[in-house]
Design a protein around this nucleic acid. Structure first.
Lengths: 204, 204
DNA sequence: CGCAATTCCAACCAGGTAGTTGCAATTGCA
DNA sequence: TGCAATTGCAACTACCTGGTTGGAATTGCG
């Protein structure tokens, strides 16, 4: 054996992540990925098979990364709202995952190769939601999570929509973040209230 | 003069709407559009200039159509929630506009040719929100609208995300609709409460 | 150093792309 | 029926694409 094969793989994966995020599955150019990685083109086919499978590898890696970097911790509706805020921050400073997800949704129409794996990843997150907001329906937890993910992921991908807001770009982002946090908190409160119907009059 | 030029235009626009919605700007094929319209290829260049401008025409037409088909009417938070429901229905039975919007966001990165026009369209909707929920901030109205649009538009484009939900496809859609309506109503109530701080104890 | 695995290089293939052009056929008003 | 505008047809240009191939160069273990 010789050479550092693992490094080659990582270089390709990093370059592919950038390219797919920017141009999508159809728009991405294999030659460009190879060039950006400083690696020869055939390595891609050797390590990942074809373009499609490289995309799968990129998306899976990025999902795991974000999931571990932005955990759902703490307890109560406010803690859940803070999770929404952290996810929003993460996606506005690095919109790679949102873009990859929407590219996939548009270009592959939901026929994800790794649908089962995806489902497993998501189930973990639902579990975290249930820990933060104990007592609520598993279904409600899933719906809540979908809502927050859709809002946080949609923002960096739909820049046209901010024409509704005035002010500088930074202002608009700050305001949007606050609104999403408030929405997440409000929803979490409502679902938590559903969970324990009237445990005597709450103090405040 | 001769020939029905207007009909030719409409045939092309309809075919282009279908093609762009399905494949996006880069993925759409000019030849396919022409063939589907039963019209010769050069007509596209004659009537719309280039591919990009055809996409602009398609998107503008589709926005106007949905805006007029799904107005914001009535009064109060519940009425606003019903608007969210109608928008959700419209987008789940015909996901063309959501797809076009996300394609544009991804492929053009927000450099919309018709950004000014877009802004005007949106302003009308914000005005409708203000009529339904009088007294609330214009900024809040915009944020509320962005939230509902993001949720309703995101659903048909992010089919992977429904792996979080169990049940049949129809069940999942129904449940999602209910949750979005509830979210919209809840937010509208909260913002309306901000608007008129404690107008004596409300009779339920 | 020897040697096998890994990589680079450069050319190649078959297919598809947006956009153009010249010409003949069709249309419908006057 | 005449005639000008509109359209269909089919070929063409210039270029780009994913994916493959053969041979030479590089690497690092033993």
């Amino acid at each position: 054996m010789a050479w550092n094969t693992e490094r080659t793989r990582e270089l390709l994966l990093a370059a592919a992540t950038e390219e797919f995020s920017a141009k999508g599955l159809a728009g991405a150019r294999v030659d460009r990925i190879a060039a950006a990685a400083g690696v020869n083109k055939e390595r891609i086919y050797q390590y990942f098979g074809k373009k499609d499978e490289l995309f799968d590898a990129v998306l899976a890696a990025e999902m795991v990364r974000v999931m571990t970097e932005v955990p759902i911790t703490g307890s109560g509706p406010v803690a859940f709202g803070e999770y929404a805020g952290r996810l929003f921050d993460r996606h506005t400073t690095d919109g790679v995952l949102p873009r990859l997800l929407f590219w996939e949704g548009l270009e592959r129409g939901g026929d994800t190769v790794s649908r089962a794996t995806r489902s497993d990843h998501c189930a973990i997150k639902v579990g975290q939601v249930l820990e933060v907001l104990p007592g609520i329906d598993r279904t409600d937890a899933a719906d809540l999570l979908i809502t927050v993910i859709t809002l946080c992921d949609g923002w960096p991908v739909l820049p046209q929509i901010d024409t509704l807001l005035a002010g500088s770009s930074a202002d608009r982002t700050t305001r949007r973040r606050a609104f999403i946090v408030r929405t997440a908190t409000l929803l979490a409160e409502a679902l938590a209230a559903d969970a324990k119907p009237a445990p005597e009059a709450a103090l405040n």
